[in-house]
Nucleic acid binder design. Structure first.
Lengths: 156, 156
DNA sequence: TTTATATATCTTAGAACTGAGAATCACACC
DNA sequence: GGTGTGATTCTCAGTTCTAAGATATATAAA
């Protein structure tokens, strides 16, 4: 009978994985639709938001914050620079490194669209009351932390 | 003071959106690492799992289940067919439509790797106890449902 | 100093899609 | 029987990213 319990646990985990994916997709669709109105992707918005709240960041820091590869950061910053929203700045201390920083145009844009974007997210998450959101935050935090720390099947 | 409350609510929503994204990414990384061992992507695995549990499906049904565009389904089924895991079957009733069905090889593969994959997901979600998972399932379900039903900022 | 190793970014090819539109067929209505 | 409308799949160009490796610089040890 030990297997019967374990079987049920696995089923429950699969169920959670499915509803988690669906919830993520549904909310992401809202985020996408919002930033698309300003010609941005979610990732681009993420970079600009990080720079807006933290100030200039080295490309490696952006990479870790946005969870893309090093090549992805290069591509992203290139695109944002081409739009005139972000610029590269040499790092004086370390000549391999660059900072990414918002241009005045970029700062003006993110300052303008951030509140509306936050409101869109809030609307998308409106299915939960504040107390339920608090629960969800706690659960997702432990879930994410544990998953990130657990070694993957085929060696971390 | 009404704004102060609303401001806090928005902040809470943003926090939830962040931890939800991180949790999703962390778990997805596990799922990816597992299916990659067998040369599959998560989406390919999703198609095969759906066909395994539901039997042959019309391409449109696969599309809705996996959440990709119509072009994406064509591309996906082409890939799986090239690997000999899935085949297209004409629909007798409707000559526009095709079914996707597992080949014997495909069925053998999914039957072999599914339990291990389920175990990997279960391990990734191990940060939560069964009771917490139950809570998370309920919360994510209402969250997802509401987000999917809510019209997007710029018109559904 | 030289050497080795680690870090930070960039380059390149290609994977995995999307979006828009085309082609084909089904179905209801005049 | 034709005709319009909608459903189903495919095509193709373009977007966004990854993986692997190259390049340049920093850091530490010998």
């Amino acid at each position: 009978m030990q297997d019967a319990v374990s079987e049920k646990d696995v089923e429950q985990s699969l169920k959670l994985w499915v509803v988690l994916s669906r919830a993520f997709d549904a909310v992401q669709a809202h985020a996408m639709a919002d930033v698309a109105r300003h010609g941005l992707t979610i990732t681009e918005f993420g970079v600009m938001e990080a720079l807006y709240h933290k100030g200039p960041l080295m490309l490696g820091e952006v990479q870790r914050k946005i969870l893309v590869t090093s090549g992805g950061v290069t591509y992203l910053i290139d695109r944002l620079a081409a739009k005139g929203l972000v610029e590269r700045r040499r790092c004086e201390k370390d000549r391999r490194a660059y900072y990414a920083a918002l241009t005045p145009d970029g700062e003006a844009l993110i300052r303008e669209i951030f509140p509306r974007h936050a409101a869109a997210i809030d609307r998308a998450l409106g299915g939960l009351h504040p107390a339920e959101k608090e629960q969800a935050i706690t659960l997702m935090r432990t879930l994410g932390r544990h998953a990130a720390e657990t070694p993957k099947c085929c060696g971390e």
